[in-house]
């Protein structure tokens, strides 16, 4: 019997249509990125029509809603960096040690308990962390340092630090686990203790993954919004004192959009200029972390 060619054809046409539709869905994700960039760029360019780039980048006062307006982004940038840096001081060591414990020390039963707990910690909404900062961490800080403001950077940093522990821990743990067992066994065979195997063999071998997890966690801390809005205050303040009230870039965006910001006004445009700054910083850090992973990856086969 001759092969039924029409049957084959009719089967192939929808195949191609389906492939095309699936491709469009995947390609749509690039449209999202283009949309973000286009939207941010359009209003940011309009913003820089009214405010010079030099004033934005070097100005030390952020007072867009005052009679006499100032548009220096440095206080907001410093606020974000301060919160992220203090959070990193807490989360990076704690997260890495947690990862080492989970991957090198804990047995399957302990892991079975700890990992879901860390997942729950990672899944707690940021507004809850804000509540925790305001009603628990801040009062605690004020009993130790009575001069602490009600809204302060330290309290926000502590909860943001707790928030990013699971990010560091789970990504670093993946990196530690990817180190082949043979390396550990080789080191044990030479008489190394568990401490020596962990810190001189496993951690160095997983270093690219660990550093990538650090960078991602810091990038998350910079983009963190609600905990900072609730706990750190809304006062653009160029200070190094963590007990004072500050404002981060993300907190400003929320504060400005809570008020009435008609399209076309300078305040509306500041949302996009600050948003663009935030987007570029976090994007650069994400790309950096991917580059570290690719560039310094140790390949074992």
């Amino acid at each position: 019997m001759a092969p039924d060619l029409t049957y084959k054809r009719s089967r192939n046409v929808p195949e191609q249509v389906i492939g095309g539709v699936l491709f469009l869905c995947a390609a749509a994700s690039t449209l999202v990125t283009l949309g973000v960039v286009a939207v941010l760029l359009r209003e940011t360019i309009a913003f820089f029509g009214e405010v010079t780039v030099v004033e934005f980048v070097t100005g030390t006062r952020w007072e867009p809603m005052f009679q006499e307006k100032h548009f220096g982004v440095l206080p907001l940038l410093a606020g974000s960096v301060q919160v992220a840096a203090c959070a990193a001081v807490i989360a990076l060591p704690v997260g890495l040690l947690t990862a080492i414990f989970l991957s090198e020390y804990a047995g399957p039963r302990v892991q079975g308990i700890l990992k879901p707990l860390l997942e729950i910690l990672a899944g707690i909404p940021t507004v809850v962390y804000g509540y925790f900062a305001l009603t628990f961490v801040t009062p605690l800080l004020r009993t130790v340092f009575p001069s602490t403001d009600v809204f302060n950077a330290a309290s926000a940093s502590v909860v943001v630090g707790i928030m990013i522990i699971p990010t560091v821990a789970s990504l670093s743990e993946d990196a530690l686990r990817a180190v082949p067992q043979a390396l550990r066994e080789g080191a044990y065979g030479l008489g190394a203790t568990k401490l020596e195997v962990s810190t001189r063999v496993v951690v160095p071998a997983a270093l690219s993954g660990i550093i990538a997890s650090f960078i991602l966690a810091i990038s998350r801390a910079i983009g963190e919004t609600m905990a900072v809005v609730i706990a750190a205050g809304n006062l653009p303040n160029l200070t190094l004192n963590p007990l004072e009230s500050i404002q981060t870039m993300t907190a400003y965006i929320v504060q400005a959009s809570l008020g009435d910001t008609p399209q076309g006004t300078i305040v509306y445009r500041t949302l996009f200029a600050v948003g663009m700054t935030l987007f570029l910083i976090t994007l650069a850090m994400n790309i950096l972390s991917q580059w570290v992973l690719a560039r310094f990856r140790e390949e074992y086969q």
Binding site: A26, A27, S29, T30, V32, T33, G35, V36, V39, L40, R42, E43, L216, S219, R220, I222, G223, E224, T225, T250, I253, V254, S257, L271, F272, G275, L278, F279, T282, L283, M285, N286, I287, Q290
Partner: peptide, 23 residues
């Protein structure tokens, strides 16, 4: 496309808010 998706996952949620507001 793959790199782009990985990068989108790292964009702070508030930036999506700005996109939503404008778009």
């Amino acid at each position: 496309i793959q790199t782009n998706i990985a990068n989108l996952a790292g964009v702070p949620s508030i930036v999506y808010g700005i996109l939503g507001l404008a778009l």
